[in-house]
Nucleic acid binder design. Sequence first.
DNA 1: CGACACATGTAACACGTTACATGATTTG
DNA 2: CAAATCATGTAACGTGTTACATGTGTCG
Lengths: 195, 195
Amino acid sequence: MSIRQSLLAILDQGPCYGYQLRTEFDRRTGSTWPLNVGQIYNTLERLERDGLVAKGDVDEQGHVYWRITDAGSAEVRAWWSAPVERAGTRDELAVKLALAATLPGIDVATMISTQRAASQRRFDELSAKYVAVDVTDPTSRVEALPLSAALFTAESEVRWLGHVAERLAAQPRQALALELDTEKPRRGRPRKKSA
Amino acid sequence: MSIRQSLLAILDQGPCYGYQLRTEFDRRTGSTWPLNVGQIYNTLERLERDGLVAKGDVDEQGHVYWRITDAGSAEVRAWWSAPVERAGTRDELAVKLALAATLPGIDVATMISTQRAASQRRFDELSAKYVAVDVTDPTSRVEALPLSAALFTAESEVRWLGHVAERLAAQPRQALALELDTEKPRRGRPRKKSA
DNA sequence: CGACACATGTAACACGTTACATGATTTG
DNA sequence: CAAATCATGTAACGTGTTACATGTGTCG
């Protein structure tokens, strides 16, 4: 959903052709999340299908311009004014840890420390890059934003893993482990729970 | 990729039938990320296609059991031993903010404070739930893990937004804004950059 | 000429998501 | 019987991702 919205937001500034959209997206995100050019054309077609953009003129140089529709602009306005919702988003690490903690026979402690080391390493790398940002260079300045996002995420991950490790260590080994439920439930409507 | 791996990890404990996998996933994740039952059967077919699971016996009650293959087990082992990679992951909020900061005419400050308020609200809600966890209740205990993950994420988000707001406030208004590049580049090989 | 960047597109596929169809079984 | 749960599946669709085909124009 992120690419759709991004292209739409850029097109809301004025008509663009496909390749240009890639360029614009790239310079505005510090080339942090490279975008395959083909993806642009796919997405534009889908946006057109949904009535959010329209295929416009072709200029002397053969560039195919796309312009946003009113419906598209409305969607962009909605995007800017509404916060990004995180509820319900499956986070691979969280899922993985939840399973590691509840499946019998998994060495959670090792898993956590491995992950923690990786996250810490990532944090260190990002940290080094972040302090190296040159505020006098526009390109570098733009990179700072995505960089800081990743940095905060990594830091939080490290702290969360620390927190979890602590909590888990305080509990009897495998206190959370749940065997597979081999008891075969009868089919049919279950008995009313006795209050 | 998260569902695939999850089902595989559960199946690595022993054969399960489809509906059971849903149940197992649910209880192990505190029903935090509800899984449509249909998804299970889809995913199982795809796992079978990839040779990671095999359709096994049907028991007296008509349950269709699936078992993991050696290749599947190997994949599970690999999953447990390797850290979750975050590099290259597009984060909608980060992308959105990067665009908000670099597209002219967007009120970044408002966007940030709206988002910050939403994230803070979410943090507060999760916080309340987290302190209400009853460690004596197995179900509640399991919920704590996903809850804490979301909690740390929300907290980090709030802090990041604060950080960004601060940095942005310290700069001249719209210092990052980049106009659409309307200069039409000639096609063809570009001139060598003059060092 | 050859390499390379600019530029547009297509086709296929991955995973995740939902809606729907179907039926068995049991409780109230 | 009706409602609810257990249980299996199918079909369609959404976004994102990649590989590939194709062509233009310029620089060295």
